[in-house]
Amino acid sequence: MGQLLVVEGVCKRYGAEEVLCGVSFSLEKGETKVIIGPSGTGKSTLLRCINRLTEPDRGRVWLEGMEVTAPHANINKIRSQIGFVFQDFNLFTHLTALDNVRLGLLKVKKMGRKEATERAQAELARVGLAGKADAYPAQLSGGQQQRVSIARALAMDPKLILFDEPTSALDPELIGEVLGVMVKLAHEGMTMLVVTHEMGFARSVADEIVFMERGVIVEQGPPEKLFRAPAHPRTAEFLRKISELYGEAA
């Protein structure tokens, strides 16, 4: 298997509602894949099933050939290799930006204090926040908080990063700085799986786009194909709606 991430037949049900029904796809090393689709179609649940923050009911997930969903998999070790960026940042409120980035290095990777500090400072610099190391989350703007949370994920040297609508909680003028960091990461060869409504980002950065609706993948393909000539009428309709909403030429 040359794939970095393989997802096979993942299903998740909440009560009577089937949120995911048999989702399969794979991700190559260095690839950026963008998942789009209407709200409530299971995109976030899918991301959480990949590192088992949500336990899938059925289906299997492999990271570099190692089965994440195996009953005795060391899930903490696996999670430490998968970055996760949340819609509402979830920075640790009681810690400074530096400590947010450093915590995983110290407590999960058991890195020495000096080394962890240097690494954390480097990651903050990488997202353009070298000067904010001592600020607490409440003292940062939403865009800055999200960039710290990306630095927190990056510091762990993840094999891939999952982005769960990273700009949806941001004021419009703050979206650009977060997308800028993500574009840079994609160009540096980071493997990324991104759930987003930012079609501009999807178009310019994604190697492939996945359109999901009602818990299934309706269609997937490179952005040129999906945006120009979607094979499925639902895809076309969704793209039209979203371009009206966001005023972007889709």
Partner: peptide, 20 residues
Amino acid sequence: GQMLAARSLGMGRLRAIWHV
């Protein structure tokens, strides 16, 4: 979300409770 973020970094439950 605080617990989720800690778990996503690979912290066990007890460690997340203790540190976060």
